[in-house]
Amino acid sequence: MAEGLFDLVLAGLLLMLAGGALYGRSLYTSILLFVTFGLVLALVWARLGAVDLALAEAAIGAGLTGALLFAALARQGRAPEGEFDLACRRRGLAAAAVLLPVLWLMLSSLAPLAERDSPLPELALAALPHSGVEHPVTAVLLNYRAWDTLLELAVLLLALLGARQLGSGRLDTARPWPQLRAWNAHLAPLLVLVGGFLLWRGSSAPGGAFQAGALLAAGVVSLRLAHLLPPLRWSFWPLRLLVLLGLALFLAVAAAGAWLGQGWLSYPAGWAKPLILAIEVAATLSIAASLSLLVVGERREPAP
């Protein structure tokens, strides 16, 4: 009874926050409500028993996307409000034209969910001893469906490149107040510690590269906002190498498997665990570097 009530309150709150984020008075309010929405959504995932998703939602959905949106708002300056209203109907039509076909395509693949017992969890658990890790979610992400994760890393890289083309060069941050500086100086090492812990735990319990990368990036962003780190330049080559590292290693493993082993992305027997760990570490570093660059990356303005 009490739990049902709690779940109902959570669901209602989620809908209200979503409405508030869409129709907020100002962009600033909308972003705040969106971050709150992400945190409540993380609670909902946790209530549903999907701890991996809850962690990812809290770290990436609420934390880093929020920071990204605020950074975008800060870079945008004062946009003319009237132009949004004019384009609104056309945008709605465009969104419907894209979303309705996608919905149609996806509904057919959702159909198996209607039968309550899916064969997939048992299949995933049955193959677990051969997957090289102990946690089924990690096994799915980095072994059975490694192809998806590889493409996710590619999408992140493409997003970073797109943001680099579009983004204006400088993020003007105010001189940090002493208290913020002191707190961030204590917080960042803690974030790195928790990120490393999540990465390490990922092979046997909820956690993994994306969550750990997001936490590391949060540490870098908070240090940068407190001016404890020098500006992160897009042109700094070790940083570029770090951004590429995850995808490069993943592709190298996949190609080596295709060329020498049984096939694309199938790990040789006995090698699954070290390979997965290496890919996870590289992916974490890449994700952390990419997300930090997205939020606080700076480009030197070309001399006029």
Partner: peptide, 16 residues
Amino acid sequence: LLVLASGATACQLLAR
């Protein structure tokens, strides 16, 4: 302790 410290910092930031 974490909530305490981050709450105090956030409050200070908002007030300033």
